Amino acid sequence: MDDLTGFLRDALYVIAGADRPSGQDIKEEMEQYYSSEINHGRLYPNLDTLVNKGLVDKGQLDRRTNYYTITDEGEQAIANRLEWESSYLDERL
């Protein structure tokens, strides 16, 4: 996870927190968080990066719609990241 951009991490968290979200679902959730529009040319290559890294699986709902699920490796990456973050934040909170 240390080689992921903040955008990739955020997308991974959105996928982890949803039940088989489509690309559009992920886009809408991230647009709410970022308070700005995310174009397809940014979103889908980043989703493909998560798939290629083995953090996310991609399936097909129909001919036009894919869904995304987090893999065990993706869940472990999030757990490792949260542990690392908490090692710095626990003392201050």
Rank of each mutant, 00 (worst) to 15 (best):
I26N: 02
I26W: 02
I26L: 02
I26G: 03
K27V: 00
K27C: 11
K27M: 11
E28A: 15
E29S: 13
E29H: 08
E29C: 10
M30I: 15
M30A: 09
M30V: 12
M30P: 07
M30K: 09
M30Y: 12
M30C: 08
E31W: 07
E31F: 02
Q32I: 12
Q32W: 09
Q32A: 12
Y33I: 15
Y33S: 11
Y34D: 09
Y34W: 14
Y34L: 15
S35M: 14
S35G: 09
S36T: 14
S36M: 13
S36W: 04
S36H: 14
S36K: 15
E37T: 13
E37W: 00
I38E: 05
I38W: 07
I38S: 09
I38G: 08
I38A: 07
N39D: 13
N39V: 14
N39Q: 04
N39F: 12
N39A: 00
H40P: 00
H40R: 15
G41L: 06
L43K: 05
L43R: 08
L43W: 07
Y44F: 13
Y44L: 13
Y44N: 15
P45C: 05
P45N: 08
P45L: 09
P45Y: 08
P45Q: 10
N46W: 01
N46Y: 06
N46Q: 13
L47Y: 00
L47F: 01
D48P: 01
D48E: 14
D48H: 05
T49Y: 05
L50G: 07
L50M: 10
V51Q: 09
V51C: 10
V51P: 05
V51G: 04
N52W: 00
N52Y: 06
K53Y: 09
K53N: 10
K53E: 14
K53V: 07
K53T: 11
K53H: 10
G54E: 07
G54R: 10
G54K: 11
G54V: 13
G54C: 04
L55F: 12
L55D: 02
L55K: 03
L55H: 11
V56G: 03
V56W: 03
V56F: 02
D57P: 01
D57M: 11
K58I: 12
G59R: 11
G59Y: 11
G59S: 13
Q60D: 08
Q60R: 15
Q60G: 01
Q60Y: 08
Q60C: 08
L61T: 04
L61G: 03
L61A: 11
D62Y: 06
D62P: 10
D62W: 02
D62K: 04
R63C: 06
R63L: 14
R64G: 12
T65A: 08
T65W: 02
N66V: 05
N66G: 02
N66K: 05
Y67H: 12
Y67V: 01
Y67Q: 03
Y68W: 12
Y68C: 01
Y68N: 07
Y68F: 14
Y68T: 03
Y68S: 04
T69Q: 13
T69I: 11
T69A: 09
T69Y: 01
T69N: 13
T69D: 14
I70D: 02
I70H: 03
I70T: 01
T71D: 08
T71N: 09
T71G: 04
T71M: 06
T71Y: 06
